[in-house]
């Protein structure tokens, strides 16, 4: 697999080599035993070490919710902000300090309910941020109400007769606002998560990653039918750029386009003729959007990088404008500014 995006936004490597342990803060981790967040935390710390990120140049920003405790456990700079607003703080920080590696950790409630507005605008602007959305399809910290990604009909404390909300798909939203890097992974597949996180870290622009994450207390096994090792081959589709979309034990099934609709077909003797070939670099996000619409039981659920394109970032263009203005007008002169366009002298 090739990496399409540049690495220029990554902080320069740490002066002293850093290990995974260097990214572990001294705080006691307070998630429930068995929570999927542990696996994500460990993998993020490992990715930081693998990429030799200098700790001082990394900032984790979160909102409110179980996932949003994340920054306390990272031995980097961190900001546990208010519900839904992490992308706004991250945007301001990135504008003020473009050289920092800024990560947003959010959940399905924080990112898509109370903070939905910020999420779409941040992705739309292509601010150079990495957004990890832990999707467990439930409100955990407030003890078990349905979330915007909960499946319709779900019985929770706040919906004793079942939800009547239609759920929102995080990836459809991200692709709908033309996210430049959009991916999905799961807390049950560390190797895949490592690949996706590294790709996200290397992407220049907003990298949006949905992570299927299990809440052992309020929504245990929400993704079991897709991500558990025994069923994964039949129910999950792992996307690879330039490769035909194959799944099933021994790759016996594939995705083909029937007009504008995807269809699942049996592949005869490993033949891939006519199957959809994944193109994460397509300029138009149409096919990526189609993939984001695929769900069980009619289709396998796709994992991997749906889209990864190069496009100027908000912070990069802001600096360009600043440099152009300075080149054209010279460095600003405060005294001249105070004088304004017209003055008169009183003697």
């Amino acid at each position: 697999m090739s990496v399409t995006t540049t690495t220029s936004t990554m902080a320069p490597p740490a002066a002293k080599p850093v290990s995974k342990a260097d990214f572990v803060s001294g705080q006691d981790v307070r998630w429930c035993p068995g929570c999927g967040d542990y696996a994500i935390l460990a993998q993020v710390q490992k990715t930081m070490a693998d990429l030799q990120f200098p700790r001082e140049n990394v900032v984790f920003i979160s909102g409110i919710g179980c996932s949003s405790r994340f920054p306390y456990y990272m031995n980097t700079y961190g900001f546990h902000s208010i519900h839904g607003r992490a992308p706004t703080l991250a945007t301001g920080l990135k504008i003020a300090r473009p050289e920092l590696s800024v990560w947003v950790v959010t959940g399905d409630g924080d990112g898509l309910s109370i903070g939905g507005n910020h999420l779409v605008h941040t992705i739309r602007r292509n601010v150079d941020l990495k957004i990890l959305l832990f999707n467990n399809q439930i409100y955990g910290l407030t003890k078990g109400q349905y979330s915007p990604t909960s499946e319709q009909g779900k019985k929770t404390k706040s919906t004793p007769f079942g939800t009547i909300d239609y759920p929102i798909s995080p990836l459809c939203v991200a692709l709908g606002v033309e996210g430049t890097f959009v991916a999905r992974t799961t807390d049950t597949d560390l190797k895949h998560m490592a690949m996706v996180l590294e790709r996200a870290a290397r992407h220049k622009g907003t990298a949006f990653v949905e992570i299927y994450q299990n809440c052992v207390i309020f929504n245990d096994g929400a993704f079991k039918g897709i991500t558990e090792k025994s069923v994964r081959p039949e129910h999950a589709l792992f996307l690879e750029h330039g490769r035909p979309m194959l799944f099933g034990k021994d790759g016996t099934r594939g995705i083909r386009l029937d007009g504008v609709h995807p269809e699942v077909v049996q592949t005869a003797g490993g033949k891939t003729d006519g199957l959809c070939v994944h193109d994460e670099r397509a300029a138009e996000p149409t096919l990526a959007y189609m993939l984001s619409r695929m769900r069980n039981p009619d289709y396998p659920v796709p994992f991997g990088v749906f889209r990864a394109i190069e496009r100027p970032t908000y912070d990069g263009m802001l600096l360009d404008q600043e440099n152009q203005a300075t080149a054209k007008l010279g460095a600003g002169d405060l005294q001249k500014l105070l004088k304004g366009p017209e003055t008169w002298e009183v003697k």
Binding site: P87, T88, L89, T91, G92, L93, A96, H118, H121
Partner: peptide, 25 residues
């Protein structure tokens, strides 16, 4: 050219959120 960075946010909350982020920076 005087080192002023302005950000027209998507809403009032985003405007101050970004301001807090910039202050942190």
């Amino acid at each position: 050219n005087l080192g002023v960075r302005t950000f027209q946010a998507e809403d009032e909350i985003a405007a101050i959120g970004a301001t807090i982020g910039a202050a942190f920076g």
